[in-house]
Amino acid sequence: MASPLKHSLARPLVQSSSSCAASRVLLLPASQRFFSVLNRPPPNYEGHIPLTKVERGALAIGSALWSFRDPRRGDLIAALGEATAQPFFIDHLRNRMLLSPTGRRILRDRPRITSTTLSIPRLRSLPSNTVGYAYAAWLDREGVSPDTRAAVRYIDDPECAYVMQRYRECHDFYHALAGLPVFREGEVALKAFEFANTGLPMTGLSVFAALTLKKREWQRFWEIYGPWAVRNGLLADDVINVYWEEELETDVDGLRTRLGIEKPPDLREIRKAEREAMKRAKEAKESGTVLS
């Protein structure tokens, strides 16, 4: 929901305190304040949980290890993203947004992507070459919904928290733009692309999941999708600065050209073709053995 969150993410107004020393402490952003678990400061926005440095480190390590074991735990990947993005990386991403007129507009409007803000049936009715149609088609093909995104809790600055939320909610658009599926191989390729494009550490750490890929997948990652991700991630414009809500009726190829993204080979098609080839080879082998 756009409006309540907009208010809750708005910074509380700074009150001038008569005591200079006290006001200096109070005015420091939470990321620079020192506190223990016994006197946790009040949240900076609704849902915010201020963490100590130790807690943040433990959260990062714990979520990293556990999500490596079980990559389907989206909540852990989200927590890993938040624990590792602060203090430097999320500011850097916000700065990239602040330097772009569209990025600034996004930060000013703080739009949210949910199934209520985006009408999926309307997107399905759009012409098939549009971004909106590609997004809806991708959601349908992968069987996912935009409502599965968790709220940001561990980023201290309200605006940076929004940047993280925006990145998270736009993740499915990146999928649709690249046409990469949600299973492990496609996700790793997209994370590599996001790391090269956004610089968020979690996306980079997620690429380590490539170590768990099967031999064929690993080979494909190194030959096709890895190089594609690095090249496109670095050379393309910042995908965080795309105002997706305004691009729904844009031609999807036109948007790719504008951003400088090449569409990688369709992973599902490649896998299907390989499966069939293997099946045929197996059949041939079996029939061969029967014949001999």
């Binding site: 910074r11 200096r24 005015l27 602040l98 330097l99």
Partner: peptide, 29 residues
């Protein structure tokens, strides 16, 4: 970063600065 962007605008800095001040914590003193 904000200053860099503000210098690219031919006009309208007043509104833009008013918005950014809400999101930039400073100690007024």
């Amino acid at each position: 970063v904000d200053l860099e962007f503000l210098h690219t605008l031919p006009e309208g800095q007043q509104k833009e600065v008013a918005w950014r001040e809400q999101h930039t914590p400073v100690n007024n003193r």
